[in-house]
């Protein structure tokens, strides 16, 4: 069973890829042994992160980019992340609506993911899903973050190339000076270039880039809906890829990813241990009550719980 899934994933079989993703998303028992098998087959895909506010056109842009990559004969994997409800645990994953015409292309694999409690704009199992798609022979993997605000920057821990999508009309120039999302771009896209205010927005990004540590960061104007400017974006992405490869930066990016993945795995193991620990499970309510009544405090309670698990 295990060998079969792995060999089918390596062949690029959609069903096996999809099943393996479900296993890692659900933290099922087989997941870690499967992941151990595929790691050595990874490393050849170019991972592109696409982030930006909600409604900025990320999905449409990804659909257009994919169309161009397919014209060049590249195999494409898409991971489209939408938020999981903190209340119900459910999610409405609707990015496929913009990707309809890619569905029947055998060399395109699209997976929608809910964040399932992860902050930072990504989904919990996204590191694993990137590895699975990479091992399955995709040349390009596009990761679409949730619609971000200002501080969700975790995409840089995964992507070789990070594309930040901006649209006109989101506020004054101070917005572009803020920390966070506006610092992570390898490429800026100003989408909806047919909307009013486009020149102002481009100028503000130009000012931002000029004063930054990387004044050569490209700014691309696009109209994702019609495909205008998307080939310029494709060109900018491949320039960036060449730069990473020739300057030895790719290895640095990959190190960042593996470190983040490692910490994520350890974190998940620890959390599983905490929730599996029956003593803790029974007592978590009473512990919270004790914090509420000032009998103890959150730090002391956390030390007690960790002490019990790690002893």
């Amino acid at each position: 069973m295990k060998e079969e899934i792995v060999s089918k994933v390596l062949e690029g079989d959609s069903r096996a890829i999809a099943r393996m993703i479900t296993l890692v998303e659900n933290h099922s028992k087989e997941a870690s042994s499967l992941m151990k098998e595929i790691h050595r087959y990874t490393g050849s895909a170019h991972i592109i992160g696409v982030t930006g506010v909600m409604g900025s056109g990320k999905s449409t842009l990804i659909a257009e980019l994919t169309r161009l990559y397919r014209k060049n004969g590249k195999k494409v994997g898409i991971i489209a992340i939408d938020p999981t409800s903190p209340f119900s645990g459910g999610a409405l994953l609707g990015d496929r609506v913009r990707m309809t015409e890619l569905i029947l292309d055998k060399e395109v694999f699209i997976r929608s993911m809910g964040t399932r409690g992860m902050l930072g704009g990504l989904a919990g199992a996204v590191y694993d899903v990137v590895e699975i798609l990479d091992a399955s022979g995709k040349d390009v993997i596009l990761v679409e973050t949730v619609g971000v605000g200002q501080a969700e920057v975790d995409i840089i821990k995964i992507a070789d190339t990070t594309v930040v999508v901006i649209v006109p009309g989101l506020g004054d120039s101070v917005q572009t000076m803020k920390a966070g999302v506006m610092e992570i771009a390898d490429i800026y896209v100003v989408n909806k270039a047919d909307h009013p205010g486009i020149d102002q927005t481009v100028m503000e990004i130009e000012n931002l880039v000029e004063l930054s540590s990387n004044p050569n960061t490209p700014i691309i104007k696009t109209i994702a809906k019609t495909g205008e400017g998307v080939s310029d974006l494709l060109e900018a992405i491949s320039q960036h890829q060449k730069y990473l490869e020739t300057e030895g930066e790719l290895e640095e990016k990959r190190k960042i990813r593996y470190e983040a993945e490692l910490i994520e795995i350890i974190r998940n193991h620890l959390l599983d241990m905490i929730y599996d620990e029956s003593i803790v499970k029974q007592r978590i309510d009473t512990i919270v009550d004790r914090i509420l009544s000032k009998e103890t405090d959150p730090y002391t309670a956390a030390e007690e719980i960790l002490g019990r698990i790690l002893k």
Partner: peptide, 29 residues
């Protein structure tokens, strides 16, 4: 409603052919 019941719902939009629906079901498992 399914979202509010804690499920992950993949919504694909209008005018889907049976082939598209089944391929989406495969990929999204």
């Amino acid at each position: 409603a399914l979202r509010d019941a804690g499920m992950e719902v993949i919504y694909t939009g209008l005018h889907q052919t049976p082939e598209m629906i089944v391929e989406t079901a495969v990929q999204e498992d």
